[in-house]
Amino acid sequence: MLQRISQTIFQGVSWQHPVIAAGLRVLDPIDKLVRVAGGRGAYPPMSIRVRSNGLRKQFNGKRFESFGKILAEELANRSGLKRDSKVLEIGCGCGRFAFGLSDVLEDGAYTGIDIDAPSIVSAKNNTFLQRKKFRFEHLDVHNAEYNPTGKVSANEYRFEFDDNSFDVVFLVSVFTHMLPDDVRNYIKEIGRMLKPGGHLMFTTFVMDSGTKFDGNDFVYGTGPYRSSHPEMHEICVGYYIDFLDECLREARLVRTDDPVYSTKGRSVPDAQTTEFGQDLIIARKG
């Protein structure tokens, strides 16, 4: 119901609308009771989960849990993730994939960073994630949709991590909210931070296979990207593979395989597929 209301009265980030926000706060205690009964009591409140996961099917935490597990499996199968890997997640939100990786990273280290301060506060204060010794940090980078008061532009930001620090870096639904210069800089920085032989995995909407995706029509924008939103393009962005490959080459990374296409969007004949809601790109540092 909240999804339909948001589509009717608000264009943009639905959870920012006061009516939606008030409704979520009312639902939080009920959501917690259902989560606890279902063994998902450790997950963040619904009003926090929706900030980086959307309103759709977020009540009770089942979707939050299932997508976390799907992505953890994809990382294990495609990115060389091991139990002792040092992992960086850019755009971690309130920890959906940190929870998903909690059974995998037994001897490794996880760092999550995000531009949404309330999500980071929630992850830092989560007792389950604290026991795992997972680390979370706020990233004060400007984004028209999620962090309009951010101090630093994404196209010039340098991450506060040393060269060759991580075995795996991954981003989920981050480049889908960023414009080309921002994406180029992030990939360059990821190339710097990855160890030789390390892997990058990120999600996007690959425009080469069509500009319609799960009910969205990506018709706005020019050059290497298209957006489904006429005014604030960062709300939903897809990219052509040639641009992504160019960015990877500049960062001394190379794709390990063809894109892995989401079964949620459209059918791509003879392609690798994933049950995750966006297409996957995997690259390796030589």
Rank of each mutant, 00 (worst) to 15 (best):
M1S: 14
Q7P: 01
I9P: 02
H17S: 00
H17E: 00
V19C: 00
I20N: 03
A22I: 02
R25A: 14
P29V: 10
L33F: 11
V34Q: 00
V34L: 03
R35M: 15
V36S: 07
G39D: 11
G39P: 11
R40W: 08
M46F: 00
S47E: 02
R51F: 04
R51D: 06
N53H: 13
Q58S: 14
F59E: 10
R63V: 09
F64S: 03
G68R: 09
A72V: 04
R83G: 08
F99L: 09
F99W: 08
G100V: 01
D107G: 04
A109D: 05
T111A: 06
I115V: 15
D116K: 08
N125T: 06
T127H: 09
L129P: 04
K132R: 14
K133C: 07
K133P: 05
F134A: 05
H142S: 01
A144E: 14
Y146D: 00
N147F: 04
T149R: 11
T149F: 09
V152S: 08
N155Q: 14
E156I: 12
Y157H: 15
D163G: 09
D163T: 15
N164I: 00
N164R: 09
S165F: 02
S165H: 12
V169Y: 00
T176S: 15
M178E: 13
P180M: 00
D181A: 15
E189H: 10
E189R: 07
E189P: 08
G191Q: 03
G198T: 00
L200Y: 05
M201Y: 04
T204E: 05
V206P: 07
D208S: 12
S209Q: 15
G210T: 09
G210Q: 06
T211S: 08
T211K: 14
F218Q: 03
V219L: 09
Y220K: 07
S227L: 02
S227Y: 01
M232H: 12
H233L: 14
H233F: 15
E234V: 09
I235P: 00
Y239K: 10
L244W: 05
L244K: 07
L244S: 08
R249V: 12
L253K: 06
V254G: 10
V254Q: 12
D257T: 13
D257L: 11
V260M: 11
G265W: 04
G265P: 10
R266K: 14
D270V: 01
D270H: 13
T274F: 04
Q278V: 03
I281L: 14
I281D: 04
R284D: 01
